[in-house]
Each structure stands twice: as C-alpha cells, then as structure tokens.
Design a protein around this nucleic acid. Structure first.
Lengths: 350, 350
DNA sequence: ACTGGCTTCGAAAACGTTTTCGACTATATT
DNA sequence: AATATAGTCGAAAACGTTTTCGAAGCCAGT
C-alpha cells in the first residue's frame, strides 16, 4: 500500500508508465502525465531513493566530508558554512543533493572515507583539509569515484583540486611589511599535518628570499589553531630578545589570543609590532586596532567547488568542459591598522 | 565483477553466506566467517547501501536539517557545529550515520523536507529553528517518521522536542538586573518567525511581572540577528529619551554591534547601560568589557538530541526508555562586566 | 539402524524503482 | 486497401542486498 505500485493502481496504469511520466520521458501521453503528476502531488509520492539508486547505479547525491571535531566546534568559524552553502547552490541547479558527512571522532577518518565510497553512499565527494601525503587521494583515485579536494597535496597526480593562494598572500603580506622597513618577520603556522602549513611556509620563505632576507628558523612559530595558541605565541614573542618586528598569522583566531597577550605585556599591534592575519573571519572583524588580513568569498569558492566537481561527473561532461580543475583561489588584502607600525618611523622617533 | 557476488565467487560460497557472515548471523561456521571477513577486508568490500536499504526498508542514517543560507553563513557561529558533533557521536555509538542536510535556498524548505521524507533518504530526522506554527511538525507526525525538534512549537502535540530554557534565562537575567535597581529593562529579539522570539518575549514579560514592573512595548526591539542589527538597536537606544538602563540581547552578535554603536556615542556597557547577552558564543568572548551571558554545552545538547531520537526509533526501543522526550535545556549564567552598572550607585554618585 | 537435533549452507524471493522491448492503436502515406 | 510511421502503453528484467526456508550433513541417543 505504498510506493509507485499504489500510485499505479490508483490510476489504472502500469508502474512503468508512472515512472516514465514522473521522469519526463516522451513515450507517455501528455494527458496521462498530467494525471500522474496530479496524483503524485496529491498523495505526496516521491520515488524511494534506495530503489532508484539501486536501479540507476547512482545516488544523485554528492558528499562533502567535513571534520566536526570538538575542537573544531569550539574554534569554528563560518568557513565551511559558506562553502557548503555555495556548493549546495551550484549542485542544486543540476538537481543534485549535497549531503554533509561529518567525520566521526570515533573512527579513523580514512576508514570512514573507504566505507562511504565502498557503500556507494554518494556519487561524488568533496574532501577538505588535505594532508601533505594524503591516503584519501590515492584511494579515491583508484576507487574511480569523482571527487575534488579543497587543498593541494603531494599525493595523487592529476586529480582535481582548488586551493587558496598562499603564495599570493605571503608575497603581498611580506612585500607590504618590507616596504615599511621590516626585516625580522615571523610567521605562525598550525601544528597539524595539513598541507597548508607546508605550502604557507614555503611561500613565506620564497617571499623572504625575493627581498634578500635570510630565513630565521626561530621566527617560525607553531601552535594550536585557536585563541589559546595565539596567546602562547604572544608569550613567546614578548619573551624573545631581538624579537621580530612583524608577524604573519595563518589563522584568524591566533590574532585574538595574540592581541590579548600583547596587551598584557603593554604592547600593542600596529604600534609595537606589525600583525597581518590570513583569512578574514567573523571574530577578528571586531578587533582593535583593526586587523590587516585577507578576504575571500566563501560562497564563490563553494560554487566553484561544486561546478568543478560537476565537470568531473560523466553525466555532466557535456554541460561543463572537461579537464581536471586545478585552481588557485585568490584573496584580497584588507588593510587594517594592525600593520601600521613602520620600522623607519619607529627608529626615527627614538 | 563487483559487489557481494564477486566476493562469493572468490570464496566459493553463496552470496547468502557472505551476507550472513558479514552481518554476524549465527548460522555460519566460524571458519568461513573468518575467511569472508578477511576477503572483504582485502578487497575493500562493503555492502552497497542502496541494495541494503531497499531490502531492509531502512537507510541506517539520520538526517540533521540545517539552514545554510548566505546570511547564516555570514553571521554563523559554532552553534550547529557543536550540535552536529554531539549528535553524531551519540548516533555513531549505535552504528547509525548522521548526515547533515542543508536546506537549499532555491526551494521552499517545507517542500524539501517533504521530498526527503517521501524519498526515504533517512530513517529519522532532527529539525531545528522551529516556527510558532510549523508545518514541518504536522507533516512529520502524519508521515510517521521518527523525528525530534530543536525548539518548541505550537504545532503538533506530543512530538519529541528539546528547547533552551528561555524562561530560566529571562528570569535570572531580570532578577539580576532588578537587584541592581533597574526598572527600565529592554529586550532585543530577532525579527524572524522562529518560535524563539515569542517564547523569549513571554518569558521576559513574566519575569517583569514577578517584580511588578509594567511591560513597556517601546522597550522591545526587533532587528536582524547580526552585528548590524545590534548596531541599529544601539542607534535607537542612544536616540531615546528616558531610555532603558538595561537591555537583554537574544543573540550574541547583537552585542558586537551594540558595543560599537554605544562607544560611538561615548557610552559604555557596564557603566552607562547594563547589557546581558544570551548565548555565549565565539565572538563575544573577546568583548571588553566582558559580556555577561549564558553558557551551555553544545556537545551535550547534541548528544541528548541524538539519544532522544534513538529512543523514538523502533529498533532501539529496548535500549532506550520509551516516552516522548520534551526537555528544557538549562544554561548557566556567566557573569561579566557588562552589567555591573547599578542604578543605585549611579544615582548616588550624581 | 533409526530418530531427533544441531550446525552449516544455498536457492530463491523480496525490497521499489527504471528501462528495454515488444505490442497495440491511430494516423499518415502510398 | 495495404503499408509504413508515430504515439502510447505494459510486461518483465535488472540493480545488490538480506532473509526465509528447506536440505544436507553430522553426531548422539536410543
């Protein structure tokens, strides 16, 4: 007493006809189609997704795997919310569902990925927070399931990915600082295994080199990507002799803690040390002095992720151009007051 | 060349035996089970979810429907991240998948719910942001699918829900303010249709009444639930004659804007006006003077949501006690400096 | 030697849908 | 009038899995 069979009996047609009517096939009379559609709406019928997926061999859904760990929950910003919103709107245009699959904290994340793929829970995947060597990418390549990665990786080869323009960010930040006379420029990186840290560090070193500034290992800080991590870095900073005159922070939240620790030491960003943050987020907006940082459209990146993934789906290869997407996503510098500090002015005023 | 059939041929057993071995049935020799499990692990086999769901009539997944609108993305805090993390960990313990289903902005949200239910995409649902009259609740009741709502509603009857303790919050906030001599106490509510606004307003009125303070309609502010909304409210506030001496904010972000607008007018929270925020979030943590607000464990609420939902699933009725859960979730007051302002002291010092 | 029970397995049905293919009708073409 | 064509529909197979049921084998007890 349910499903397409019920609907068919109600209308005195075969289930095949009902299916064809609902799926817009042309070998069904326009009049009967109307009847079927009306009855389906009236009875609130929609085809059972399991049956449909089983027959068609595809689930009509795309998965976005995201880490929802407790610490992510505590420190979270709007990063993934914006991405999901964008990707979802891109995919919805093609009648694909986007489902967010949170990594369980109770199981190895690679094992979860394997299970999801092996069970054919979704047709394609968006993964994020790529590692320098990331088993997921190798696996997805062999498993022959379309996917796109947010973040580069040394693993895999010609798989599609989009990553933020860390080179551009490091370059324009360092250019800006050097132009104000800074030579002792520090950087704060996350202490996890994500590829982001490596790429950012390399970009930083390259930018320094362009200005003939030697790389100083003790100017590289690593810590938790949280307010507390920023506080700790601030502590190290104030305790240093010949400390850096500027610092580049890879996470917004680091700025919150750094500001706090500096002010405890009677120091102020923009006056005693230049601070540049990385991605503008919801919290640092309210800092004073305002934080110089980099801005991007999360929605647009989400849309691009979705569309790039569509391009890899066989069913949409006609709509979207082929070729593996490997994109660098640009960010715009948002000038604030936190890097106003000029070494020359400071020395002149002594 | 795939699926359970492949595995069975490889092992020279029937597909039925393979299935039974993997599902822990007793009518399979322990030795063959070992062989099956080993082969499955080696070949990376996991049962196709569509086939499995079709046969079993259940998907083994729970859906958490969340609005990922652009403005939600812009203003977002960690609210849902924490909830999802908690719910996921509760459900994972019983081998249930949690999938987050973002409402598309391109389709009516009720229609989306209907589709998801009719297609049997998930076995049960968590819905949030309930409305005063919420068609989703009526529908889910009739559709005979287990669900739990985060938020009360006038719709439906004995359906399971959990909601925050707005009464308790309003009461302890108003008690605190009245004890400091305040009588002109304002409240800032969201301008949307969620039930939250109604419940909070009623709680506020009841708390005032308990202290014999008449309700003043012009002390009820409504606006966008964003920093800008708080800024606007601040503007109204400073322009008022005989303005309130205290205000209760329903959203954390309102505090950010309010602080900003007040400081533009040379006023300061805690000195010129008492401010109490509602839910402690990631941004207001960094306000100065610190915001008096209310704290809760998002993780624990998520866990409770998950477990309460489990209790409504037929398959788990033995594990969890029956009965529809209708819970009020408590919050703890976190004293800050923003409500230090005492009317008596202020008057005395004049 | 027969019965009964226990263990282990395979054949086959069923889940709800889509899709192929052939059949049938009505219309158009010769 | 015969034939081709287009339009409309239904029967049936197939997707991958779980589960029921019966069969087969083995052992113990009589």
């Amino acid at each position: 007493m349910k499903g397409i069979r019920h609907l068919a009996e109600q209308l005195n047609v075969s289930i095949g006809t009902v299916s064809k009517a609902l799926n817009g096939r042309h070998d069904v009379n326009e009049k009967t189609r109307k009847r079927v559609l009306a009855a389906a709406a009236k009875l609130g019928y929609a085809p059972n997704q399991s049956g449909r997926s089983l027959r068609q061999g595809s689930t009509n859904a795309v998965g976005f795997m995201i880490e929802f760990s407790p610490e992510a929950a505590a420190n979270s910003d709007n990063f993934f919310v914006g991405l999901v919103e964008g990707a979802q709107s891109a995919l919805a245009r093609h009648a694909l569902d986007l489902v967010v699959l949170p990594y369980s904290t109770q199981e190895d994340s690679f094992a979860q990925l394997q299970r999801i793929v092996a069970r054919r829970l979704v047709d394609a995947l968006i993964i994020s927070a790529t590692l320098k060597v990331d088993p997921r990418i190798e696996y997805l390549g062999h498993a022959n399931i379309p996917f796109i990665a947010l973040g580069r990786s040394d693993s895999g080869g010609k798989h599609p990915w989009i990553d933020l323009d860390f080179e551009g960010v490091a370059e324009s930040a360092i250019d800006r600082l050097v132009a104000r006379g800074h030579r002792r420029i520090a950087i704060a990186l996350p202490d996890n295994e994500t590829n982001l840290g490596y790429v950012f560090l390399n970009s930083y070193r390259r930018a320094l080199k362009r200005h003939g500034i030697p790389f100083t290992p003790r100017f590289v800080f690593r810590g938790r990507s949280s307010e507390a991590g920023g506080y700790d870095i601030g502590g190290e900073l104030v305790a240093m002799e010949r400390r850096p005159t500027a610092i580049l922070l890879v996470y917004e939240l680091l700025a919150m803690g750094l500001y706090r620790r500096l002010s405890e030491a009677g120091l102020s960003p923009g006056r005693d040390i230049a601070v540049i943050g990385f991605r503008e987020g919801p919290q640092a907006r309210f800092l004073s002095p305002t934080l110089t940082c980099f801005r991007m459209s999360l929605h647009d990146l989400g849309v691009t992720l979705g569309e790039s993934l569509l391009a890899t789906l066989p069913a949409f290869s006609s709509v979207y151009p082929l070729g593996t997407v490997q994109k660098i996503w640009p960010l715009q510098l948002v000038p604030g007051e936190s890097d106003n500090f000029s070494v020359e002015r400071a020395q002149a005023s002594r």
